[in-house]
Design a protein around this nucleic acid. Structure first.
Lengths: 149, 149
DNA sequence: TAATTTTACTTGCAAAATACAAGTATTTAC
DNA sequence: GTAAATACTTGTATTTTGCAAGTAAAATTA
């Protein structure tokens, strides 16, 4: 079989570059990691610090400081979990939601452009394929966990 | 249409995490960026510093220092371009090739595992889809270039 | 219920990554 | 033949990173 990794490497690098260039919203400069954090907070249900840090594969100490920055920028809010006082629930402020939405729009506009090069059938095939992939990855033991050792 | 960005974000995050955890080869610890550099040098034809830096979207000054590290680790070699003395051609040493190959193997093993969850038809569809995507992305103006502004 | 362990997070530090400014050397353009 | 552009390196300052070590709260155990 052909080199699968190459295929994925090329694809994810391109998407990553896009992501990297996509994070300036109305004078407010957002770093790539910050944009990822906003995205995850926006897309998980009442997430804790630990949950988001795990999703992103960043150390919790690094993450803790990143959240501090985002709070200073007034994009993210921390609320103590009433049921467990150790836990901080993360959410976006109104401004944070606006920024996250704006990035989302830019990314989607780009992806629309990419997909506009395909016909209807190809589009559907590709989208279904990514669903398949995401599903398979989520079932895989190796995915998203450090290799032991 | 559904949120395309979400689909891609999930997929590329998972692949990225894998990449991140995939870089330890026989006691030799390779960072994610370093692994990307090795990959690009291995997969481009007689690449210059600038070419690889551009491919990865890193500043040339940062990249210059990263190459210095990799040369100290004896994984990468610089050769002056005979036709243009300003240019340095990058290549992998034998050890660099071994490391790059080893990472490639680990990544492919993981991807095999992921694909093992699909039937033959699904596999082919997914692989063809990624080809389609990479093609479309390479044609897109927005891809891999900074947004103006 | 008291002592121990685990979990969720924060801060101290030191190392690494980053990028802008300014440099050198070579090549291209006029 | 001078000016401009290109390919890279180094100085410096900032940011990001993560381990170690801390606090505080919850879960487990005795």
């Amino acid at each position: 079989m052909e080199n699968l990794r190459s295929l994925f490497q090329v694809m994810t690098r391109r998407f990553g570059l896009l992501n990297k260039n996509c994070c300036s919203v109305g004078g407010c400069d957002i770093s790539l990691i910050q944009s990822h954090i906003l995205y995850e907070i926006d897309n998980q249900h009442n997430p804790s610090m630990q949950q988001i840090a795990d999703s992103l594969g960043t150390d919790i100490t690094t993450f803790s400081r990143q959240v501090q920055s985002l709070m200073k920028m007034n994009l993210v809010k921390k609320t103590p979990d009433p049921a467990d006082k150790r836990i901080s629930i993360l959410s976006l402020t109104a401004e944070g939601k606006y920024i996250a939405g704006s990035i989302d729009q830019q990314m989607n506009a780009f992806l629309q452009e990419v997909f506009s090069q395909m016909n209807e059938f190809e589009k559907e095939t590709v989208i279904r394929s990514i669903h398949l992939l995401n599903n398979a990855m989520s079932k895989s033991s190796a995915c998203c966990k450090p290799f032991q050792g």
